[in-house]
Design a protein around this nucleic acid. Structure first.
Lengths: 382, 382
DNA sequence: ACGCTTTCTTCCTAGTGTGAAAAAAATGAG
DNA sequence: CTCATTTTTTTCACACTAGGAAGAAAGCGT
């Protein structure tokens, strides 16, 4: 439990900042609230809250919304957190294209743009962000960049498709250029964060999101934060040794994902029902299973494999909630029930399986939560 | 990421307390240090440090140790953290017996006692602790109780052997009786915490400790803290579905641990080398493998199974470091190398396998770190 | 002995949160 | 309509804290 406290824990200014932050955070949580509420939530005295609120209103963080709740006594002056006071940029690098969105702290997208990814990634990102925020630059609190498969130490692992060799320099470079905090992370991690703050996992502090696409990856949230592991490889569940005892060496793509990701399933579906490769192989398989016995059988196989995957994760980290994302979210209700049954039968702790609900928006919401928490660095209290 | 801030984040007194704590923590880390060091570490000014140190010396937390480091200028007055100023009690409930140790914050055991576990657990624990601390009661900062297999919500899972039905009430009851914070946790979790602060994982913030005994359990430390999962079942790796596709239902003991824990190995070792069941089956197996081909073969099997276990964990959480504890720590160097090779060949991220170093002391050190951090509740900053 | 350097201490000041009191803003009874 | 009542918001003086500056202390080298 290595703790270092190189910087001041409680200097004068720091303390003041902490106070401000606690008010801002409280306000961000509750949509509308009065000074009294604020005082209760933060534990500060009414006098202090008054002073702070005046300051924050002047700065545009809070807006006065007139009296509310007609009750006996002086009515409370309602305050509202101004979501536009804090903007974040969410940049998503997907193999051939880049998408950039500017959102306020509630997730409302203010501006967005998609384009082909040019040669110089850093240049493109900065240009996009600056262009999209425009005059609101002072409100920009942070930038989150989603990359397919990046590890903390900088090596890009599962992303041979992206043309960038070094991922870490991106974060630093952009940070230097834009002057706001930048975080770079795996897209699946961002999805997990997104579902946790604004999606199917908004009510829990632990979850595991399994994203099935060309590969299979997972994002892990424990105790309210995304956990990346020692070298950022947490959630590389595609490499789980579940398919018997194949003694293959590490080769960039995992045994498990080689057999049970979308590509493999699509092939099999085409074999079962010749024709063009379907847009959504899993949905197609669910459909076929209703009438075709072989399809039914194969679906059972897939569910069995995925159940094994979920079970493995549940035994190691006990997430309590498992969210299915990507192709796995295409399962119909019957299949989902079956999967839940398979899992429940063998887990040592209760584990619920749900579909992720945010879809493409998951990365955006994750990026927002990242950027906001990066913008508001918790004081490094030991 | 559910955050609630019901209590005061930065009231006046709280701020002062935080300051004090940061000094205490800094002092606890560095064994000997001067006021200047302290000022640098905490970021406080020299004036503030002087005042605080005077206070802490008066209270017995710090001791003055005369001048040190003869250098140009006035020599620094060295201070030393007084480990005796903070005592903790580590109670370990093992099936037929209870062991209780009083230790200072450095892990030095001041008093200890072992006895058979009587009928009333709470009574016994309180009596033991009170008796052992004696006059030092005011210095007692916390109590940590290690139970074989307890989950956060109170249900005892893997501990049919212990005669206690409810584990949670223990914590609360003892806390009420002794008036100090009490934490109750799985013994394997405590071992992991212990190895992380004072053992083989002292230099890292992420690790997984695998303890092989009658069952197989793991303790997970991510980002410097023990992670228990949603219902305290993280680390139940005995239930991993690695042994092919046995479709057994949940039955209190996992498929994997049924095949690869000490009991199973001991049986096989007896079969290979008839006689009494050896004290340390794994060590015995390592020995036999040097001369007997069947033993060699079986050892390979065991290592393969354990490698699969480690691999599964590595793929899910990427601990970076895996510590072997219990019977698994009895592997000789050759076997350990072999295991490391098996693991490295297939993990997506570098994963080192070591032996745990603290042995029986691991639980104690874990309990100390628990008790100390429970005694010093971090301010609930959102 | 005399500077010199570094550490520790003392004193004063600026700045902060809080409690109490005052002001403000509505309601409802007479 | 007026006035007591209730609740929220604001103001103000106070107690307290951290930090800066200056001074005292304690050794070292010449």
């Amino acid at each position: 439990m290595s703790d270092k406290a190189p910087t001041s824990p409680v200097s004068r200014e720091r303390s003041r900042e902490i106070k401000r932050l606690s008010v801002i955070l409280a306000a961000r949580q509750a949509r509308r609230l009065s000074r009294v509420d604020l005082a209760e939530m933060t534990g500060l005295s009414a006098a202090t809250v008054t002073a702070l609120v005046r300051e924050l209103v002047a700065e545009g963080y809070l807006i006065e919304r007139g009296p509310g709740a007609p009750t006996t006594g002086r009515p409370r002056e309602m305050l509202e957190f101004n979501p536009r006071a804090e903007l974040v940029a969410a940049v998503s690098l997907e193999p051939p294209r880049i998408s950039c969105e500017i959102a306020d702290s509630e997730g409302a997208v203010i501006a967005h743009r998609v384009a082909r990814l040019g040669a110089n990634v850093v240049e493109t990102v900065c240009e996009f962000v600056l262009d999209l925020v425009g005059d609101n630059l002072p409100s920009l609190r942070g930038v989150a960049i989603a990359v397919p498969g990046v590890s903390t130490n900088g090596a890009v692992r599962l992303a041979p498709s992206v043309g960038l060799v070094e991922a870490w320099p991106i974060g630093e470079s952009v940070q230097r250029r834009l002057g706001v905090p930048v975080v770079v992370d795996n897209d699946v991690n961002l999805m997990a964060a997104g579902e946790c703050v604004a999606g199917a996992g908004a009510d829990v502090a632990n979850l595991l999101l399994i994203h099935v696409a060309e590969g299979i990856g997972a994002g892990l949230v424990l105790d309210g934060k995304v956990r990346r592991g020692a070298s950022g490889a947490a959630g590389e569940v595609g490499f789980l040794p579940l398919g018997g005892t194949t003694e293959r060496r590490y080769s960039g793509v995992g045994d498990f994902e080689a057999r049970w990701s979308v590509n493999a399933i699509a092939e099999r579906v085409v074999a079962l029902n010749p024709g063009r490769r379907p847009e959504s192989p899993v949905r197609e398989l669910s459909r076929l299973a209703a009438t075709s016995a072989p399809a039914r059988e194969y679906l059972d196989e897939v569910l069995g494999a995925w159940a094994g995957l979920i079970l493995s994760c549940a035994c190691v980290v006990d997430p309590g909630l498992v969210l299915l994302s990507g192709a796995a979210a295409e399962l119909d209700d019957a299949a989902l029930d079956q999967l839940q049954t398979l899992v429940s039968a063998r887990t040592p702790a209760p584990t619920e399986v749900r579909r992720a609900t945010l879809g493409d928006q998951a990365v955006l919401h994750g990026a927002i939560s990242y950027a906001l928490s990066a913008a508001v660095p918790r004081p490094s209290l030991p």
